[in-house]
Design a protein around this nucleic acid. Structure first.
Lengths: 349, 349
DNA sequence: TTTTAACACGAAAACGTTTTCGTTAGTGTT
DNA sequence: AACACTAACGAAAACGTTTTCGTGTTAAAA
């Protein structure tokens, strides 16, 4: 087991100084052709690669991005990661991940762990618990130490930083408009409690679409799910709630759900109640997931372009990192809004 | 924007030496109580945290694990990552990810990028292209430099290292046995070409199960898909192949598929041909995915316990890292086999 | 022959730690 | 008064780089 070779070892072997080796490898004009060739040949032979850690320390730059997400077993987030990784790698950066598991304390701990020199900047999506507690001190502290943050999807306006968000409002609005155009008269909304910003915006889009078509929103058509419960586990409870919604509103002929699982459950319940999709009820979900595509009938959805979000976030962050030199430019932050697409499948006419 | 505070700055402010500050913060007996309190108070006030990079350089240990996987937008792999992250964090390690995107060259590049000091060891699953080319020099080189590797799921016997694998053979065997017990007489197998080790083993399990029940395997019931094509895109081609299988073997009453997508496609095709599931045809898949659970009918699957695999892999790697001191112990490598579970749902009787 | 310039290289500092090994001053012992 | 011992601290090396600034040698110019 031979350890990795260092400049010092090469220098000793070839009987020159460390500086000479370093310069020779970087093709400096200071070094004679002879020496360069000798050193480079030797380095190649022993497969020399500069030690990243030493470089990071010297340059005070790690070329590594930290990404903190609430959950990785989730199509949306893993697609975002893929986007980040893609761009980061192309631009010479590594990606290091931290999972908050939707917990405030894990988010804080993870950020502190990475902020101590391991990375140059963060890309993150806020955990539900943090959103509920509205405690954002760790973000502000991190930024005040000169470490840039780019937030995506779940953001808060209280924090000044670059952001990449989905156009939740218009995405939802267009989906509901589609249902209206398809002659739906009684459109139900299945959403989350309001503290998750995206749920709120999608609800708003639903309301605006109705309004623009002179339809009066009815409170009994809006089902707000408490999503602190993990419905991957408590699927029956979710379905029970939706069943209640259908039973107390027999005239429902359209459903807009703010995520994939709610939409799928709605379809399942509707079918159970003897309703045909899309003949009796049309359903649209909001997501990037894989379920929609392979469901039967396949689900019409509002696509969020998760990978594109990740790419954009990575570009924003790296741009900021590499332009930090111009500190004269007053800090100005962008919010990039990613447009959604309505992907029509079998659950709508 | 205040930069992170360092020992040197604290030393200057308090008019003591760097060594004194360092010792005071680590509660060394060499330092007087007075000084300790003074230093510790100051450090707390300015929220001092030791710089990870400097520590890594000094200790020649990064406390970071590199994980290389072919694809992250994939339930199996993201669950494995979650397991790795869970254990790693608990044991004081970070996780840095690299995606090979099933490509040999990206796998090599990514490994080289991380192997230059950024991490202490690898957890990885081999890309399809690498498996095809059978070029494993990068693994051996990495290990010869003293960097341990733990492989999971897609492994090769040529390489001596710790491994965590699914009991593919018995998982498949039990699934097929289940079908046989459920009175299936003509069981089809939908699998991949043989170069992916797991596909091979699952095929073998299928064959052994038939054999044990004195059933003769028929070549025409075995469909080998060329999975270099991405069937997330070319779904129709996949379905066409399966349709052909059904049409040329009218008596098929059971299907065992080596992954989720094949199984779902089989169900879809069967339904299209007017067959009822599970009455006419019973289907079992092999996976940990989310599709199976939410399909209609929901799919009986062989569960791989992906998260558990990740946890185990992380434990193996960290154990090795922390016991590297005893170099007297002759290198011995373990292969941990994770047992599967058959999760019975609606696609079987 | 002396000055100048180019050339080829080495020494040392710096990044931020930890740790080993002095060093100094004060205390106690004979 | 000479000695040993301890308490409290500092200097310096080391981890592996890059880069700045010498420095010595040689060849060309005056």
């Amino acid at each position: 087991m031979k350890r990795k070779i260092t400049l010092k070892q090469i220098a000793r072997e070839l009987d020159v100084s460390i500086s000479t080796v370093s310069k020779a490898l970087r093709n400096s004009a200071e070094i004679s052709e002879d020496t360069k060739q000798k050193v480079q040949a030797f380095a190649k032979l022993y497969n020399y690669r500069p030690n990243n850690i030493a470089l990071s320390l010297k340059n005070r730059k790690t070329n590594t991005i930290g990404i903190i997400i609430p959950e990785i077993v989730h199509h949306f987030f893993s697609k975002v990661i893929r986007g980040v990784e893609l761009v980061a790698n192309k631009r010479g950066y590594n990606v290091i991940i931290g999972l908050s598991n939707e917990s405030f304390s894990k988010e804080v701990i993870n950020m502190e762990m990475l902020a101590n020199g391991s990375i140059d900047g963060f890309i993150l999506s806020i955990s539900k618990e943090t959103l509920q507690q509205q405690d954002y001190h760790h973000f502000n502290e991190t930024m005040s130490q000169g470490m840039p943050i780019v937030m995506f999807d779940r953001v808060v306006s209280d924090i000044k930083c670059d952001k990449v968000i989905v156009d939740d409002l218009n995405g939802a609005k267009n989906a509901v408009k589609k249902l209206i155009e398809n002659k739906c008269k009684s459109i139900a909304l299945i959403t989350t409690k309001d503290y998750v910003s995206v749920g709120k915006l999608r609800t708003q889009g639903y309301l605006e679409a109705l309004e623009e078509h002179k339809m009066t929103p009815k409170a009994e058509l809006i089902l707000k799910i408490d999503d602190t419960l993990d419905y991957k586990v408590h699927l029956e409870e979710l379905e029970a709630e939706i069943e209640l919604l259908f039973k107390s509103n027999k005239k429902i002929d359209g459903v807009f759900a703010v995520n994939e699982l709610y939409a799928l459950s709605a379809m399942k319940v509707a079918r159970k109640l003897g309703l045909d999709i899309p003949k009796d009820v049309q359903v649209i979900g909001f997501t990037d997931g894989v379920l929609s595509k392979h469901a039967t009938p396949s689900l019409t959805t509002v696509s969020q372009h998760a990978q594109h979000m990740g790419e954009k976030a990575a570009d924003l962050l790296i741009d900021k990192l590499e332009n930090e030199i111009n500190e004269d430019v007053e800090e100005e932050y962008q919010t990039v809004v990613i447009a959604t697409d309505l992907i029509e499948r079998e659950s709508t006419k």
